[in-house]
C-alpha cells in the first residue's frame, strides 16, 4: 500500500523535497503562527500595561544564558547526528543523538529549577501579567522541548531499525526531526531576550 505512494524516500524531481520534508515545513509554518500569536499577545499586553517589570530583575539571566548555550549546542549535535548518517556511520549517529537528548534534558532540568525557585517565592502565573506570559510562553516551549526529546528518543532506540532496510528514508526522518529541533531552538532564541533582557 504505502509502497504505491511516491516520494517517501526520494525527493520529488520538481519540488526537490520528500513528502515528509514538505510536511515538516508546513508544520513549522503553523508553529510560527502559534508562537507569532503569542508574541503578538505579549506585545499588545505590554504596550497596554501601565507598568511592566524588567525581566532581568525578576528572572535569573545567568541560568537562562546557560540554557541558551545548552540548546545551541544541542542543535549542533543534532546536525552532527544527521551528518553521521550521511556518512553511513550509525554508531556515531547514536552517540550524537544521545548527546542531543541529554542536552535537551539538561535544559528541562534547569528550567524546572527556575520554576521551583519562582514557586518558592510565591510567584505564580496569577501573580501578574508578566509572570502569566512568562510561565505560558516558557511552559509551551518546554512542552515542545519535551516533544523533541520523545521523538529523538524514538529515533535513537526502536526507530533506528529502519536504517537497516531503508537508510535513505531514515536519514530523511532525522533531517525532519532536526528541522523541528532547530525551530524549538530558534523559539528560545527569541524568548530569551524578550522575557529575560528587555
Amino acid at each position: 500500500m504505502s509502497s504505491l505512494i511516491r516520494y517517501i524516500s526520494r525527493p520529488h524531481p520538481i519540488t526537490g523535497v520528500t513528502n515528509a520534508k514538505l510536511g515538516t515545513w508546513c508544520f513549522l509554518a503553523s508553529e510560527v503562527m502559534l508562537f507569532g500569536a503569542l508574541f503578538s499577545a505579549y506585545i499588545l499586553l505590554r504596550t497596554g500595561a501601565s507598568s511592566w517589570p524588567r525581566g532581568s530583575e525578576l528572572l535569573s539571566v545567568p541560568l537562562a544564558t546557560f540554557n541558551t548555550l545548552v540548546l545551541i549546542t544541542s542543535s549542533v549535535t543534532m546536525v552532527m547526528a544527521w551528518a553521521s548518517l550521511m556518512m553511513k556511520d550509525l554508531s556515531k549517529y547514536k552517540r550524537y543523538m544521545g548527546f542531543t537528548i541529554l542536552l535537551a534534558l539538561t535544559f528541562l532540568v534547569v528550567k524546572g529549577f527556575e520554576y521551583g525557585h519562582k514557586f518558592e517565592h510565591h510567584h505564580f502565573p496569577s501573580t501578574s501579567t508578566f509572570y502569566a506570559i512568562y510561565f505560558t510562553l516558557t511552559g509551551l516551549h518546554g512542552l515542545h522541548v519535551l516533544g523533541g526529546v520523545i521523538v529523538n528518543t524514538y529515533f535513537l532506540l526502536p526507530g533506528s531499525k529502519l536504517w537497516e532496510t531503508e537508510p535513505e528514508q531514515f536519514t530523511g526522518r532525522i533531517e525532519c526531526a532536526g528541522l523541528y529541533w532547530h525551530f524549538v531552538d530558534l523559539v528560545w532564541i527569541f524568548l530569551f531576550p524578550v522575557l529575560y533582557l528587555l
Partner: peptide
C-alpha cells in the same frame, strides 16, 4: 485564565 488564574 480559567485554570491558573492569569489575567490575559
Amino acid at each position: 485564565d480559567r485554570l491558573a488564574g492569569t489575567s490575559f
